[in-house]
Write a protein that binds this DNA or RNA. Structure first.
Length: 763
RNA sequence: AACGAGGUGGGGUAGUCUGGAUAUCCCGUCGGGCUCAUAACCCGGAGAUCGAUGGUUCAAAUCCAUCUCUCGUUACCA
């Protein structure tokens, strides 16, 4: 038994959609396994996380659905919190069953007013220590008719490139020629979200965190962690540090977030940048747990209970901080968050930017001890994706399956070192031929055999317990127990679960060699001493099978809490298996117990065909409008802006077009003469079309996914002839070919029925 | 195209940082056994020149170089 303070930090799910299996495998299942394991070992565990509820994507969802951002986050916070509980993640109870001194857990949310207060407090501390710098930036401002308006991030502004005159250039960069420039140089700037609005450049002040000041101390920290960090964490962190750290904006022109705690008009309409805020949830959540849970439960430190898990003790003991997150979030937790923690320590100790920054000492907030980041779980070979309807959502999964089947499959198939794949055939096979055939079946053999024996008060096995020497089997199990412990300590979940499964195999082997079923039919009247000896030996092995089942219940508990509890009860063991000390699994002197109820199988077999038949409904059953984020905000959210145009593209209902407007579109017939690969774009063909003119024309088409060059060549197609020519990665495209798109990945060109001369008008 | 990750028996996967002798484990497959158990269990076999080539070394899956393929992110599209 150990007695450490362990803080388990779980990445904050973005409350803009439901969780899917990729999220579970990446950052929600592993911390729960770890937490359960640490508790069983006697450690004091505090587990913190919650919904990340601020930021622009949430306001977009709210606008689209005609509700408030608060309603959006309320919905998904409730949904996701319930799904995690249904999965067995130990967010309840909030107080450890051993008592408040042993910790607990809290799944909080960033719209919590206490979170806001603490973030603002930290913000001021860092600012007063001189760790921020102000920069004035020029940014586009969209003016609304009512006199109000809003600042637009560069990505939300389009215009004409000052270098190559291409249309559709971004606020600070042209995608055509790659030029970068000051926003003010952009010609004809237009707001992407609101193209009709007037737009102008205004100065806006923003605060930047002086990450650069932490370069040295972070390098030192990273080198201290070389031994324990996984290779992906080392590599990703090194890459960041090698690039050199630069100040990073901590404020943002943002409407849905935590307002800046400063007076002054220049700060109106600005919020704390979401990355800076959400990541602090790891500490604010611990403090809120202390105030709301620990203090009322009479923790010895009252409202300061969180310090047990957060602060380096006066004797130098460092609480163990484990951060669970997906690979895209690594630098956030190994570079940026440590820099914030050390900045807060620095400020708290009354120092300023001019003094050297140091690693935490006694009384300071501690840095992470390990970041067992996962790679991605793929779905049938592709990435989880809402827009392509390529996802299995956690809530709908749990409506149909035993949560432990998912926990087993993801546990044995966890993306620890590289991406792994979820697919239904593999899922069914692993559940049926591993989980059920080895583990479930072994347990069921022991219980049903036992049920057929004459029972005493303490069950059928006590009479045979330890009648023969089972030392060899005990040693095997003790070795497995040590291996499981070692693997879990090193965050090697797949390996640990495999070792636990080996215990079931040991049990099956024992039964196979003992053949206790041979002695069931005849009772033993004692008339044949040799028979008595044989029977006793067989039954002794069988009764040791009961001990192996108990071993399995305890060691499987972190992975499979529901079935472990069922097994525990089937064995007639009192209490809750999750509260049984880890080492009790190899205590061979534990008094035996028995449950007289008829043994039920631990798991139900799965039928692949049945699942595949209903899979489609599972895949489709999602109500959200946006792809859910699964990371702490800010790490890498480049995807969102490219999805924004949908806001303007898709007005509600039908929009009628003037006939005149329609007639302005010049559609013509052309014949494809040659099709070549675009030299500088993976998805584009460069298509030459005979349009009836001498010189013909060139059109770039993104049809590579749907057509080969050979298939297209020679086809008569319809194209838009008067579309403004546009350079696409270096090749000018003079028009657009028409094609039908069913929205589900199928695209076919519009071709001409019969013969007609090229250049003919289409009307 | 840039950046990142990765190619190990039929599928999945460990080992790669910190070179070492018969390359791990699970599933599948083949043969045998068992019949208590959810078509489950147990024993045994077959099956891998560790993506390719070259190099370093007494020794390479492991280190170095080049190449190749795959995947992801980003950009370009109907």
């Amino acid at each position: 038994m150990t007695d450490e303070h362990v803080l388990i930090c779980v990445a904050w799910p973005y409350a803009n959609g439901p969780l899917h299996l990729g999220h579970v495998a990446g950052c929600y299942l592993p911390p729960d396994i770890q937490a359960r394991f640490e508790r069983a070992r006697g450690n004091r565990v505090l587990m913190v996380s919650g919904s990340d509820e601020h930021g622009t994507p949430i306001t977009v969802t709210a606008e689209q659905n005609g509700i408030t951002p608060q309603q959006v986050v309320d919905e998904y916070h409730t949904l996701n919190a319930k799904a995690l509980l249904d999965l067995g993640c130990s967010w309840e109870p909030k107080v450890d069953s051993r008592g408040i001194e042993f910790g607990g857990s809290l799944f909080n949310r960033t719209t919590d007013p206490r979170h806001k207060e603490m973030v603002q407090e930290n913000f001021l501390q860092l600012m007063n220590a001189g760790l921020f710098e102000t920069k004035t930036m020029e940014q586009y401002y969209e003016i609304h008719a009512d006199g109000g308006g809003r600042f637009l991030p560069d990505r939300y502004v389009e215009g004409i490139c000052p270098a190559c005159s291409a249309d559709g250039a971004r606020g600070d960069q042209c995608d055509e020629c790659g030029a970068t420039y000051e926003s003010s140089e952009l010609k004809n700037p237009v707001s992407k979200m609101n193209p009709g609005a007037a737009i102008e450049i205004r100065d806006t002040d923003h605060l930047f965190y002086r990450l650069d000041a932490f370069q040295g101390v972070l390098e030192q920290h990273a080198s201290n962690q070389q031994g324990s960090w996984k290779s992906n964490v080392r590599a990703m962190t090194k890459q960041w540090l090698d690039m050199g750290l630069r100040p990073r904006a901590v404020t943002r022109d943002l409407s849905w977030g935590i307002p800046l705690p400063m007076d002054g008009d220049e700060w109106d309409g600005k919020c704390v940048y979401v990355w800076f805020e959400a990541v602090q949830g790891y500490s604010t959540c611990a403090r809120i747990w202390a105030e709301e849970i620990a203090a009322p439960h009479d923790h010895s430190l009252g409202k300061d209970a969180w310090k047990k898990w957060w602060c380096v003790a006066e004797d130098g003991t460092i609480p163990r901080h484990l951060y669970f997150l997906g690979k895209d979030n690594i630098p956030f937790h190994t570079v940026i968050w440590p820099a914030l923690i050390m900045g807060l320590n620095h400020a708290k100790n009354g120092k300023t930017i001019d003094e050297p920054i140091q690693l935490p000492g006694p009384g300071d907030y501690a840095l992470e001890s390990n970041v067992p980041a996962m790679e991605y779980l793929m779905l049938a070979g592709g990435q989880f994706s809402k827009s392509r309807k390529h996802a299995v959502w956690l809530p709908s999964f749990l409506e149909r399956f035993d949560p432990d089947t998912l926990r087993y499959y993801l546990g044995i198939n966890m993306p620890e070192n590289h991406d792994t794949d979820f697919n239904w055939p593999d899922f069914v096979e692993k559940i049926n031929s591993e989980l059920i055939a080895a583990y479930g079946n072994f347990v069921h053999r022991v219980l049903t055999l036992g049920a057929r024996l004459p029972s005493s008060e303490t069950g059928p096995f006590t009479a045979f317990d330890h009648l023969v020497n089972t030392r060899e089997t005990q040693q095997k199990l003790e070795a497995l127990h040590a291996s499981i412990t070692e693997s879990l300590s090193r965050h090697r979940y797949k390996e640990a679960l495999r070792f636990a499964m080996n215990a079931a195999q040991v049990g099956n082997q024992l039964l196979q060699s003992a053949t206790p079923w041979k002695y069931l039919s005849e009772s033993d009247d004692g008339s044949n001493p040799q028979y008595t000896d044989e029977r006793n030996a067989a039954m002794a092995s069988l009764s040791f099978g009961w001990r192996i089942a108990r071993f399995l219940s305890i060691t499987m508990q972190p992975f499979l809490p529901f079935s472990s509890a069922r097994l525990w009860s089937s064995l007639g063991q009192p209490g809750d298996v999750s509260q049984i000390p880890w080492d009790s699994a190899i205590d061979w002197t534990e008094p035996m117990t028995w449950n007289t109820a008829k043994p039920e199988p631990l798991f139900q077999r799965l039928d692949l065909e049945e699942i595949l038949a209903s899979e489609q409904s599972l895949v489709d059953s999602s109500e959200s409008k946006e792809q859910p984020g699964h990371t702490v905000k800010g790490g890498k959210k480049k995807k969102k802006p490219t999805e924004e145009p949908k806001m303007t593209d898709a007005p509600e209902g039908i929009t009628y077009l003037d006939f005149e407007t329609f007639m302005e579109v010049d559609l013509r017939v052309g014949k494809i003469t040659t099709v070549e690969d675009h030299p500088n774009a993976d998805r584009l063909f460069v298509v030459s079309i005979d349009d009836g003119t001498e010189q013909g024309r060139t059109i770039c088409a993104g049809l590579k996914e749907y057509y080969s060059a050979e298939e297209m060549t020679g086809k008569s197609v319809v194209f838009v002839a008067n579309l403004k020519p546009r350079a696409l990665r270096g090749v000018t495209s003079e028009g657009m070919m028409l094609a039908a798109d069913d929205g589900e990945g199928k695209v076919r060109l519009i071709t001409i029925d019969g013969d007609i001369s090229t250049g003919s008008q289409v009307r």
